[in-house]
Design a binder for these strands. Structure first.
Lengths: 228, 228
DNA sequence: TAAAAATCGAGAGCACCGCTCTTGACAAGC
DNA sequence: GCTTGTCAAGAGCGGTGCTCTCGATTTTTA
């Protein structure tokens, strides 16, 4: 019963899979706002209303795409980090940052879906928020490892007391790291995604041409900032 | 002729102005993708087709909104910077960064239009790219002034030779600043907008609660990074 | 094995969108 | 006063997300 699924169930998961794949392909060409259930149905040789048997609304399909996107990006970052020697913190930082940019350049519309402006009318459910931690976890581990090895020491004024709870929450991703380093890591992290977003969203047009080299320099700057 | 405009011309510029204002108000409530020419026309008591006498397409209306947005943000940053003593570089940096965040929080959808994912199907014309420099100019001036005063000195490896042209172009905004400082400034700049985008686009949900205090800390970190 | 229940695709339809084209009213300039 | 240019209005095209009904098919139950 549960092991050998009924034929209907099998074809259902197959069709669901196919819908998501087609939707992702359309996302890649038309962008998030251009994602059309009717177009997906057309490509599947279905009638538009039939899609609603599988996804009750366009937003639910979007949610699936977002979660799969976070996982794909997270996995890419994990792989890049794992390919480096554990003790080479700056190498891991560079590799992880490079993985973010590479993935973003390869899947620009998916990146926009994850880190760009929210799709109008779409309210992200809790599931997407949970899926988001995967890549951040890698960055946290790098910082934590570097700190444990004596690097990533931050001199500077103490963090405001009201930030203690936030720092504690962030520290779950980088155990043992003091508040000052936590916020410096956040600053570096936002620098990374800020730059990638700049590049993808056209902010570097007519400004920076040597994108790859400039990115490497920015990453090195941020890495040095982090004390790696 | 040119001085005392014809009644038709006067009512035309008035209506154009009204369309842009209503569009911006709708942008604020429905977001960029939710901007609808029909809805604008409805609110004006016009028929939808009449709008096309003033804006040949939805994209042209968007272009106007984007340019006005860049100018509004740029003006806010200019004002914040001008309110500080010229020699207080870290104060000016903090003020300018705060102006960006304040403006973004006050006009989230407009910020998304400027710095978020590009609107699907919309291709930004050159005019919008030109309008973009206004706030960046202020940041460049702060860095240049700080450097001239002996601050913002960067130690570190030389910038890759292939980045010379890009550095030169950026240096127009911060005269006299060496390559290393130029790219550090770019890193700080992307950290600022990265963080604001994180906050506005929901990336800090379930992560950072004390947004204002955390932002101040991030800005201080980036300012120290810049040597201000 | 036969009947009942659940599932599904198809189709029509609703209200909306951007955009185009035509038509008739009106004002500007000769 | 007449021509010319400008304008709002309206109908219409093809597209969207989404809902509802209907008939067919499959699964489950008796």
């Amino acid at each position: 019963m549960t092991a050998s699924r009924t034929a209907r169930e099998r074809v259902r998961t197959e069709l669901t899979r196919e819908i998501v794949d087609i939707a992702r392909r359309q996302l890649a060409t038309a962008g998030a706002g251009g994602l059309s259930l009717r177009a997906v149905a057309r490509e599947m040789g279905m009638v538009s209303s039939a899609i609603y048997r599988y996804f009750p609304s366009r937003d639910d399909l979007l949610t699936t795409l977002i979660i799969e996107g976070y996982n794909a990006l997270g996995e890419a970052v994990e792989r890049a980090d794992a390919a480096c020697p554990r003790g080479d913190h700056s190498g891991r930082w560079r590799a992880a940052c490079g993985a973010v940019r590479d993935w973003a350049l390869a899947h620009p519309h998916e990146y926009a879906l994850l880190y760009g402006s929210p799709v109008p009318g779409y309210h992200a459910p809790q599931e997407t928020i949970a899926a988001r931690v995967r890549d951040v976890t890698v960055f946290g581990r790098i910082v934590a490892d570097a700190h444990a090895a004596g690097a990533a020491a931050v001199r500077g004024p103490a963090v405001a007391p009201s930030l203690a709870a936030d720092a504690d929450r962030m520290r779950e991703l980088m155990p043992g790291v003091p508040d000052e380093t936590v916020f410096r890591a956040l600053a570096a992290w936002s620098g990374l995604f800020g730059w990638v977003s700049f590049e993808l969203f056209g902010q570097l047009e007519n400004a920076v041409d040597e994108r790859a080299t400039a990115f490497a320099r920015i990453v090195d700057e941020l890495g040095a900032f982090l004390g790696l």
